[in-house]
Design a protein around this nucleic acid. Structure first.
Lengths: 237, 237
DNA sequence: ACGATAAGTTGATATAGATCAACATCTCAA
DNA sequence: TTGAGATGTTGATCTATATCAACTTATCGT
């Protein structure tokens, strides 16, 4: 009888079997190293929509790799205002910004039903000292996130922010082997607005304008980019 | 006769002698490890005001540690608009966002006459695999930068951005052993405005308002914070 | 399938901050 | 020391986007 993973705990912790092996932490590892990495992945758990992985304020012990779906990291400030810091796609890590303060500063919430792999950071960094490729990939993933946030700083107008946001998702989906021109906008308009620092009404209006100008096509959460160049010209990079 | 370093090339490459040993890369290293780190620091060069360390587009080989003064990293987009991505204080690194793309994406310019240490990244990462503490500090410094940019995302209004900017400098100077309440605003108003994504006129007006409300005192580049709590309440974190 | 609740859209209005313009002050080279 | 260009300030106006409000459409539990 075959071993069937349960819904709440898919025991497939084999990076080597995972489709994200070319994007996630294992990039550049040989088979033996990958087995060692697999051995420190503690769980690979399904999170239901709106379920959170940990809470802002919790002590930092693990970093997480998105296996499927999407997580958004939400920070709450002293006034109780929430800020969606980022959206995390399969193959991306979250929790790394907690290394420095030693506790998490945002709460990752599953945007749709999603799977994340949990990795003890102490074990990960120990392993990284033994595996130059793993260390390099960890640094690369962090550099990538720094780089992305620097690029976004240049987007000042609401149009630039929206265009930049769509282009970023497009590029990241493309990297993951999906279409760059057609994908799901899984998060709500309200959350897009919050993340970009604008009103939901503005998101709605600007998306409508892009649809009218034949730049985009949107059916509920399904988005098609019909004029990529227009978006690129809008952001100017 | 004592060995006197020349102005253009201060040959003091000893981290152990550097006042930033508690903040910069050497944090947590023992004497022997520190000597090894010292051995891969290639130069510690003085940059005149407005002089740049490298150019955006150059291939990535080195990361830099600020030894004294201040550097600002400037990115130019396709439309020729420049964006000041960050200001770097002594003990901070720059160039790390280039690991991922493999080439620099911004140009670091000395805000005032400044010194930076140049470190070959390949050698640094090799060393980091041999020294868990060095690897940890490298990851910590990157995490710190990610964390800071996430915190800044919450600042939406111009007041919040200015307050957040001043508080960030204050905290960083304090960490470096300087007063949290009094320091030099070395960069120009125009550059502050550019960095924060607002008009220089707005910076001028808001700073004036903060002076009138007895929150700040400013004499040319010298700034005194008279009401830290007001600034903290403004940003709300 | 139905109604309740949330999410999204559209329009009208208000406002924070950009832009334009004039002036003031600083910096520094001759 | 002067004066020219850069930097900063102040005021008047304009505009992008927030806010408020009403409505429509989707979602989901029963």
């Amino acid at each position: 009888m075959a071993l069937i993973p349960t819904a709440s705990s898919p025991k497939q912790l084999r990076c080597s079997q995972c489709s994200l092996v070319k994007l996630c932490l294992p990039v550049g590892l040989n088979d033996e190293d990958m087995m060692q990495l697999e051995s420190i992945i503690e769980t690979s758990k399904i999170y239901k929509q709106n379920e959170s992985v940990y809470r802002a304020g919790d002590p930092f012990h693990h970093v997480y790799a998105v296996k499927s779906g999407m997580f958004q990291t939400v920070a709450i400030d002293a006034n109780g205002d929430s800020q969606i810091v980022g959206f995390h796609l399969p193959g991306e890590l979250f929790g790394l910004d907690a290394i420095y303060p030693g506790h998490y500063t945002s709460t990752p919430v599953a945007v749709s039903s999603s799977i994340a792999c949990s990795i003890d950071f102490k074990e990960l960094s120990t392993l990284a000292t033994q595996m130059p490729s793993l260390q390099h990939q960890l640094l690369t993933l962090m550099s990538k996130e720094m780089h992305a946030s620097h690029v976004n700083m240049g987007d000042h107008s609401a149009d630039q922010k929206i265009a930049g946001f769509i282009l970023s998702l497009s590029a990241r989906y493309k990297q993951r082997g999906y279409s760059a021109n057609q994908f799901q906008l899984l998060m709500s308009r309200k959350d897009i607005a919050n993340h970009l620092g604008m009103a939901p009404e503005t998101v709605s209006r600007l998306l409508k304008r892009l649809i009218n100008e034949d730049v985009l096509d949107i059916n509920q959460s399904d988005i098609t980019i019909k004029n990529m160049k227009y978006l690129q010209d809008t952001v100017g990079h």
